[in-house]
Design a protein around this nucleic acid. Sequence first.
DNA 1: GTAATATGTTAGAGTAATCTAACAAATGTT
DNA 2: AACATTTGTTAGATTACTCTAACATATTAC
Lengths: 218, 218
Amino acid sequence: MASQTVENYLKALYNLGDDKGEVNISELSAHLGVSKPTAHSMVKNLFDEGLVHYQKYKPLKLTDKGEKVGALVIRKHRLTEMYLVDKMGFGWDEVHDIAEQIEHINSPLFFDRMDELMDFPQFDPHGSPIPDKDGNVIKNEYLALNQCQVGDVVQLKTLSHSSKDFLNFLDKHDISLGQIMEIISVEVFDKSVIVSYDKHPNELLSQKVCERLLVLKI
Amino acid sequence: MASQTVENYLKALYNLGDDKGEVNISELSAHLGVSKPTAHSMVKNLFDEGLVHYQKYKPLKLTDKGEKVGALVIRKHRLTEMYLVDKMGFGWDEVHDIAEQIEHINSPLFFDRMDELMDFPQFDPHGSPIPDKDGNVIKNEYLALNQCQVGDVVQLKTLSHSSKDFLNFLDKHDISLGQIMEIISVEVFDKSVIVSYDKHPNELLSQKVCERLLVLKI
DNA sequence: GTAATATGTTAGAGTAATCTAACAAATGTT
DNA sequence: AACATTTGTTAGATTACTCTAACATATTAC
């Protein structure tokens, strides 16, 4: 079992990776709030464990094995955040610190149960995909509606996850998958968005709704 | 903040304490699965932190400060076990290992929310009291009904915690606080109990019900 | 192309928690 | 009371993770 520290390094490497999945040690140490020699020595351990590719003075890259562990930590983190918001009534601003701790719980059973209780969400409310039990992620180019700009014309592709109430809400507003809509305005204060579609030229959608609508710009 | 290790030592000292709250180092080391010198050196740290009273060759005793921390760890543990069973559908046999980990999460908010979602249970289903936010426990001599013997005559004193469904169930069976009943038989296989009271000479109560009925022998 | 800056590496040390080996004190047995 | 056993303590080492100081390599600026 990877220690909490190792899990944190792998998660950081996973999150910081650029298009090629490469990260340098300075970035890593800054992100984790440790000194560069500390990060460097830990990277050597990860290398010895076969979790990261390493060559002197070259950027770091996770091995397949390291990437899987990283993805599983992120799975635990994102499932936890979803659960705290959906099932325990926390606000999105409150859940990060708790999830940072719970992500290190070692119990597949526990997280799979969470997953089940939420009906297997594929994306978190920010549109980030939740890796599956094997660490695989659905590569998605989708944006949450609240990440779009005024003037964008977008098509609804996925619901980050659904609940009875949410599906009901969409139904009432004549919104279904495939729906094309235009962003009319974005309210800075409460992050709500006004969209226009079909017979609804001026529909206000709250942040909570927008987070769950994953769209593609067209 | 106490480390996970320190939390585990304090919890152990709290749980192992006899009538006087005294524990010896051998017991402690055996319970925690560490060597005696390890326990000994840790105890010195706890002493330096003012968490335990210590004199050479004398049994250990938690200070008020140490006892409070211990009680709060137990609060987190028992709340978690209740939550896993009540809200996540785990069986009682599955929750211990998960709760052992979650009890170290540092977030009063998280545990208070759990508490609230379960309607502030005062006892866990085994009849053990759940310490409050300040580490105070209701000293109770109550037993869960399933800890009683055939032939015992008992009076219902407290519900370990209540839910709408549970209260409903009790109502339907004419059971209310103060009710006096006699244990007719205990089924070993499923830990159900048959009791007799008032106009119900032969009422079968499942394990789940018995765990929630806290009684006093009379 | 040299100097300045940023990034990466090595060496050496500290802390928390653990261990084994060896010894000391307390307790139990006959 | 003497011996055996259990319990407690000390000394010294180990592992994982962290640090600072000093130095080496790579990158950027002019």
